[in-house]
């Protein structure tokens, strides 16, 4: 029986509370920080000559689909009624959105050190100490919209444009792929200034603070963001039923991406699952 992931703006206050409680419990037991570590451990840039499975590569979408499923399963062991809500950032696109309220994600970081001071994940509440970050900073930080060089959240038109892609991904299968749905959604682009940051990447930059770096999972909004990214992929899959995951076959010896990316039936660390196994989520969850 598939469960439903809802838009966070449609959650009842009881549902918000149960989600937050389950996340805090996961943090208390130390499991949350294991998720932070997994993400840190799998960030590999695409000019390093190493295998990439999580970012700057075709398996960006299935890797994060599985990452979300693991997180959601951990939450549901604590409270079987909980699912990961999604944040439609084309719609809830200001710091005033209820997403950032005191009973849910909490608000922006303060001036100076960007420390989040409100909500369940504020350091002073005693239940959200960052243990695995890129600095020794123990508090969650955010810097909405980066005021010193302002950036806005992606729009519905931006999403629509990416949705016009008819191919899943294209060579060279990295951040420089000029077309293909995966890189359009991941959001690496040419250009100047903020034009370079699209969709998924742009949201990380808009939230700022910890969402900007290797420790992005320390911000619980990470999951709501990625649930929406996963929803967009799911919607794209439904609209393009014959456009399967690419590359179907591993890039051959001699190809610059030989052994650098996961093809359809190649296994992704740390779960040893293949992209093919993550194509159809309909038996497990659906989006409302």
């Amino acid at each position: 029986m598939a469960y439903t992931r809802k838009n966070q703006r449609d959650l009842t206050s009881a549902e918000r509370k149960r989600f937050v409680s389950a996340v805090l419990e996961l943090k208390r037991t130390g499991q949350y920080d294991d998720f932070v570590r997994i993400h840190i451990d799998h960030y590999v840039a695409d000019g390093e000559g190493k295998l990439r499975v999580a970012h700057m590569c075709p398996s960006f979408l299935p890797w994060h689909r599985r990452f979300l499923l693991e997180f959601e399963r951990a939450l549901r062991r604590i409270d079987p009624s909980v699912t990961v809500p999604y944040w439609d950032w084309t719609r809830d696109n200001t710091p005033a959105a209820s997403l950032w309220s005191e009973d849910f994600m909490g608000g922006n970081g303060r001036r100076g050190d960007f420390q989040v001071m409100t909500g369940p994940f504020a350091y002073a509440g005693g239940r959200w100490t960052v243990r695995h970050g890129m600095t020794e900073q123990a508090f969650l930080s955010r810097d909405f919209g980066r005021p010193r060089d302002p950036i806005t959240l992606p729009t519905a038109a931006d999403v629509d444009e990416a949705m016009t892609e008819r191919t899943y991904d294209t060579a060279p299968w990295n951040s420089t792929s000029r077309s293909g749905f995966r890189n359009r959604l991941e959001g690496w682009a040419q250009g100047q200034g903020n034009e370079r940051f699209r969709l998924h990447n742009r949201v990380h930059r808009w939230v700022g603070g910890m969402m900007l770096g290797g420790g992005s999972v320390n911000d619980p909004v990470f999951w709501l963001h990625h649930a929406y990214v996963d929803l967009l992929w799911s919607r794209w899959q439904a609209r393009n039923p014959s456009a399967g995951y690419l590359p179907k076959d591993p890039p051959p010896l001699g190809d610059p991406q030989y052994r650098k990316v996961a093809a359809l039936h190649e296994r992704m660390s740390p779960w040893n699952v293949t992209p093919a196994e993550l194509m159809d989520h309909s038996a497990v969850y659906r989006y409302a």
Binding site: D113, M134, T135, Q137, S141, G215
Partner: peptide, 9 residues
């Protein structure tokens, strides 16, 4: 921010 880099950096 103000904190020193961690080992992860």
């Amino acid at each position: 921010g103000p904190a020193p880099l961690s080992r992860y950096a």
